[in-house]
């Protein structure tokens, strides 16, 4: 989108815009609102984290339980994000490149996790896999641990992040159509070759965009993971859960130190996301071009 405001040379120019004073007031309200609602919490996280000096800030990360929380968070994201990439590519290939019955239903179902409370997303896995759940007795007999263990945390994370990659790719691939793939196939390229050398380059920035948001949610998910984790220290606590524990123990400096790390991740996510929107606007889905 062009940044230049359209200037109307005629006298009507002033009548389709607001007066300078009105503009100023509206901008001031918007800035004040965003600063109070969004910026203040972000600033507070870092301020509280460093309140007792950098030494105490970094001391928080020598706690073995916190370190194991960092490791678990990275592990969960390392499983959930690639799974969502493969799913997102498969779903968008089927939906964008073909016409078939039930496509709209499929689109609706993919978006389903977005309209479900994170707590309910965790609850469904409890009902399936906990000791009193459907598969509970069978899992126990075979010594498989899902709930209150890493597999449950991974499942809950995959559930809540499920739509992220797919919903970035589908609108873009739909707008790109199938002509380039058809040309490649007609010229003798194989299906996989076409996918890797024609389709993938066309969607790489949108894919990165989706992965970015997916990863942010995967590392930061709280509600769903909280339900299935069991909060076993040093074992099934992810970073957000560790923050909760530290906070509830009134260990505020450590809680905000860990929170700062996640807030830093959020900032990096926002910066890369904005760069993608500015530089590769035409290669992202239409709704992302602002």
């Amino acid at each position: 989108m062009s940044d230049a405001t359209i200037q109307f040379p005629s006298k009507t120019g002033s009548e389709i815009g607001e007066s300078f004073a009105v503009k100023l007031v509206l901008i001031a309200i918007a800035v004040a609102f965003l600063a109070a609602v969004l910026l203040l919490p972000l600033v507070v996280v870092f301020m509280e984290g460093f309140r007792k000096g950098a030494e105490n800030f970094f001391a928080a990360f020598s706690d073995p339980d916190t370190l194991s929380a960092v490791r678990l968070t990275l592990l969960v994201a390392a499983i959930a994000v690639p799974f969502n990439i493969v799913f997102g590519l498969a779903a968008s290939w089927a939906i964008a490149k073909f016409n078939f019955k039930g496509k709209n239903l499929l689109l609706t179902l993919i978006d389903l996790p977005f309209s479900i409370s994170p707590v309910i997303s965790g609850l469904v896995f409890i009902l399936l896999f906990s000791a009193h759940g459907w598969f509970g007795p069978w899992l126990k007999a075979n010594n498989v641990e899902i709930i209150f263990a890493t597999p449950g945390i991974v499942l809950a994370t995959v559930f809540v992040t499920f739509p992220f990659v797919a919903r970035e790719l589908i609108p873009l691939m739909q707008s790109q159509g199938t002509t380039e793939e058809e040309a490649a196939l007609t010229l003798g390229a194989s299906g996989w070759y076409t996918f890797f050398y024609v389709t993938l380059p066309n969607i790489r920035w949108a894919l990165l965009y989706g992965v970015l948001l997916c990863n942010a949610r995967a590392m930061g998910e709280f509600g769903a993971v909280s339900v299935v984790s069991g909060h076993i220290r040093g074992l099934t606590n992810t970073m957000p859960l560790q923050i909760e524990i530290l906070y509830n123990e009134y260990n505020f400096t450590a809680a905000f130190a860990v929170a700062s790390l996640l807030a830093g991740l959020a900032l990096v996510t926002l910066v890369i996301k904005s760069l993608l929107e500015w530089r590769y606007a035409s290669e992202l889905a239409a709704s992302r071009r602002h």
């Binding site: 972000l42 930061g220 998910e221 957000p240 996510t269």
Partner: peptide, 10 residues
């Protein structure tokens, strides 16, 4: 982008 627990304690 900001994890909900981080927003919560802030």
């Amino acid at each position: 982008a900001l994890p909900t627990a981080v927003a919560g304690i802030a």
